[in-house]
């Protein structure tokens, strides 16, 4: 199971690196979503995958009696998803505003803040 997830992470990262190498900033952003999901899967898998064993404590006990799934990575992933979503929403708005104002999505043409020599 972990191996499957690991391969999936690899494929996601490969695809996202491909997207992020593009000059188009929007493609870069899509790459960013993919790689952030890959990171979430890494956390999830590194907590070890335990199928069909919800982390529940039976009534009257202080700790789970049998082996249960690790609940901590799920909490971490949840936090990371929420944060990642917020950041992505911001980044998307920023790219949209930039497109409206600068009229381009090509990162090579974004030279306002760092003008080329002599091109002031």
């Amino acid at each position: 199971m972990e191996i499957l997830v690991a391969i999936m992470v690899g494929v996601l990262v490969a695809a996202s690196v491909y997207l992020m190498l593009a000059r188009n900033v929007l493609r870069f952003l899509f790459g960013l979503i993919l790689i952030s999901n890959a990171a979430n899967l890494i956390i999830f898998a590194s907590g070890r995958l335990t199928a069909e064993a919800p982390p529940l404590i039976p009534e009257g006990a202080d700790a789970p009696l049998e082996t249960v799934a690790n609940a901590l990575p799920q909490a971490l992933v949840l936090t990371a998803i929420v944060i990642g979503f917020g950041l992505f929403a911001f980044a998307l708005t920023l790219v949209f505003r930039t497109y409206q104002n600068l009229g381009t999505l090509n990162s090579d043409e974004m030279r306002l803040a760092e003008p080329e020599e002599g091109g002031k």
């Binding site: 992020m20 900033v25 870069f28 952003l29 960013l32 790689i35 952030s36 890959a38 990171a39 979430n40 890494i42 956390i43 999830f44 898998a45 590194s46 990575p73 971490l76 990371a80 950041l87 911001f90 980044a91 920023l94 790219v95 505003r97 930039t98 104002n101 600068l102 990162s107 974004m110 030279r111 306002l112 803040a113």
Partner: peptide
């Protein structure tokens, strides 16, 4: 906006690397 794009994208990449490292 121009500077922001570079700041935001590169910092987001670093954040994701950090998160993977934590995992």
């Amino acid at each position: 906006l121009d500077g922001g794009i570079k700041y935001v994208t590169l910092n987001l990449v670093s954040t994701i690397l950090f998160l993977s490292g934590v995992g």
